[in-house]
Design a protein around this nucleic acid. Structure first.
Length: 423
RNA sequence: GGAGAAGUGGCAGAGUGGUCGAAUGCACUGGUCUUGAAAACCAGCGAAGGUAACACUUCCAGGGGUUCGAAUCCCUUCUUCUCCGCCA
């Protein structure tokens, strides 16, 4: 959520930047400013009314104390009128706050200068491409065939016990999955990220804190009886650990990593995009998150990109880095780099990581602040990225590392797996 | 799940209807003193809105109510602790 004070100050620049999202935001921004002005004027009247009634109350108290009950009762009568006015102003104020809130919830974050304009994922900018695309043998297969062949993932079993999009990992498939989680976590902790294990269900306040609620309610599974949500990403519980906190500047940066399953309802997709491991209702992901001083968040994002790069290099997977265009940029982000691994058998790029700088967009909702060098409170910046999402990495490994005689395991993973081939 | 107790500033802990945003201690910040440090002493020290700056307003777990006036009384939700039960 944008800060109203910032909108007031940068209205035109914001409107210009939001054009990159194909959004003509100027009317919304102006409306927000106007509602806020109303709100402040109502608040001023309300404050004044309250001040009057507070001072009357004090007077009444003193009169009673000194035994002048009759005079006190006279003053009491005067408070009646004030109370009515107070009630009216309070209602008007609440209404304005609610209107402003609703409006602000619907304005996306401001894209950074480097974000290219564009409508869809086709307009994303390819920043760089790395690694060679392997030449596969003639009978190379997509991963959904390979997993059957080697009996390492069973989609039908998952359907039987739960439903479509909930695969069951078996044998070496299960072990490889576990190996990847450990490997990613080790890489992240070695880079200074503190490992956290967090609940997989969160309350409503957490959903609001990171922006899944109120608008993206349908994305999450909701446990109605306890009013809890299954997390769509570790970002939700881990970022919310710091909800409402006031940090000291010396506490920054805070760097955390965590493995969690992720649950997504993801309605409305079809075809090869959702085949096999490409899109699931439950999948595993290791996430990295940072809480940064505003002066350092840009550099931190670059460092996160380098970190994810290093992992993909070590796994020797062909990948490319995209800078998302305005049209594809997430609602809460100012700048996002996507990492895609090439799926040789499917002949397409699969998104395996998304690394974003949210600046103050989340921290404003979270009320996550720090005390700056002037002793004033200031919103911190939040960033996060996947390092990495498991299913598509798994798909990439299975397809790119397949041979006639089995699937090789990338060298870096062999110690974690305890085997070097799936056959 | 049952019974009881409690939730106050970074922490500890007073405050039970009136000038309380809240005593006191610790922590923290600045200063005096000291060769330096410690100790001691002096001063400051919650957040949000609002203002040019003041003023002013709001916040004592969350929500609602009683009252001219609520940290204090009532209702309700949540959380924590103790005892009992159950249990990986």
């Amino acid at each position: 959520m944008l800060q109203i004070a910032a909108i007031r100050e940068h209205k035109d620049a914001y409107a210009t930047a939001l054009k990159k999202r194909n959004l003509d935001a100027l009317p919304m921004l102006e409306e927000a400013i106007s509602i806020d002005e109303q709100r402040r004027s109502i608040q001023a009247q309300l404050d004044e009314t309250r001040a009057k009634s507070n001072s009357l109350s004090k007077e009444i108290g003193m009169l009673f104390k000194s035994g002048k009950g009759a005079e006190a009762n006279e003053l009491k009568a005067q408070t009646k009128e004030l109370k009515v006015k107070e009630e009216e102003l309070k209602n008007a104020s609440n209404e304005a706050i609610e209107k402003l809130q609703t409006l602000l919830y619907n304005i996306p974050n401001i894209p950074q200068d480097s974000v290219p304009a564009g409508n869809s994922d086709e307009d994303n900018e390819v920043v760089s491409q790395h690694g060679d695309i392997p030449q596969l043998h003639e009978n190379a297969q997509p991963h959904w065939e390979l997993v059957k062949k080697y009996d390492i993932i069973d989609f039908e079993l998952g359907t039987k016990i739960t439903g479509a999009g909930f695969p069951v990992y078996k044998n070496k498939g299960a072990r490889l999955q576990r190996a990847l989680i450990n490997y990613f976590l080790d890489k992240n902790t070695a880079a200074g990220y503190t490992e956290m294990q967090v609940p997989h269900l969160v309350n409503e306040a957490s959903g609001y804190g990171t922006g899944q609620l109120p608008d993206k309610e349908g994305q999450m599974y909701h446990v109605g009886i306890d009013d809890l949500y299954l997390i769509p990403t570790a970002e939700v519980p881990i970022t919310n650990l710091y909800r409402g906190d006031l940090l000291e500047a010396k506490d920054l940066p805070i760097a955390m990593t965590g493995y969690t399953p992720c649950f997504r309802r993801e309605a409305g997709s079809y075809g090869s995009d959702v085949r096999g491991l490409n899109r699931l209702h439950q999948f595993d992901k290791v996430e990295i998150l940072r809480i940064e001083h505003p002066d350092h968040s840009d550099a931190a994002l670059d460092a996160m990109v380098v970190h994810v790069k290093n992992i993909l290099e070590e796994l020797q997977l062909p990948y490319r880095i995209l800078r998302l265009c305005g049209g594809d940029l997430g609602f809460t982000s100012t700048l996002t780099y996507d990492f895609e691994v090439y799926s040789t058998a499917q002949e397409k790029w699969l998104e395996v990581s998304s690394v974003s700088n949210f600046k103050t967009f989340q921290s404003n909702r979270l009320k996550l602040r720090f005390r700056n060098s002037e002793g004033k409170t200031e919103l911190a910046h939040t960033l996060n990225g996947s390092s990495l999402a498991l299913p598509r990495i798994l798909a990439g490994i299975l397809e790119n590392y397949q041979t006639e005689n089995g699937i090789r395991i990338p060298d870096a993973l062999v110690p974690y797996c305890g085997f070097d081939t799936i056959d």
